[in-house]
Amino acid sequence: MSEHLTQDHAAPAFAIVYPGQPGDAPATPKQVPHKGGAVNPSVAALRAKFGPVIGRHDVVWNETTVFVQRDKVAEVCAWLQSDPAQSYEYLSDVTAVEYRDAVRPIEVVWHLRSIKFRRFLRLKTELPKAGKTPLEVPSVWGVWKGADWLERECYDMFGIKFTGHPDLRRILMWEQYKEGFPLRKDFPMRGRFSRSEQLKNALSANPEARYSMEELSIADAFEDLPHDMRKRIGGGERTGE
């Protein structure tokens, strides 16, 4: 038996850190009120800093939601992340909500978390369904890199464009998915097309032509492709992705 097998188990070589101080140990929330809990102090700071950009806020189940003007989201987020008194260094989630209501606007939701101060803040912005406002919000990719795929998913599922995102493509559905945006309320659960049509569309995708144009161009491989494939992909057909 070699030597290392006979050694005793030793604790691994890394630090064991107890997060937080003993004095301010967080506790499991008990008897959470439906409405009217404590407001996150960042709301007052946001109002002092940005004024009319910040809309109404409410506290439901002890979670503070702040509405932000649509085109100022990225600025607000950048400040929340970089300001040492706020320090929202962690982006939990980016998603959207559409209500079962023909008029009620779609809401885009950002869940921010400050690990330093143990705070949780929900930012929201409203996108009216009808009217001239496009379904567009600024991307927060410049603030948190983690927003990359979350925003792509939101675009894929709701059709909300995140301006300034470096690579806003569909991510879960394939690129020429024709049926629309699945999580919109006007999208039926079983899809818009019949099952045979869905299957036909899926199977007509050629698995060999699944590389996207940028993937082929970075590899300098486009010129080496067979003639028919070059024609197909060069003509804009992009199966798979």
Partner: peptide
């Protein structure tokens, strides 16, 4: 530890952290 639920703050356990 940081946003406890189910009374996790009353259990004694360590959070291993790498370097």
């Amino acid at each position: 530890k940081d946003f406890p639920y189910l009374d996790y703050e009353t259990y004694d356990f360590d959070v291993p952290v790498g370097t």
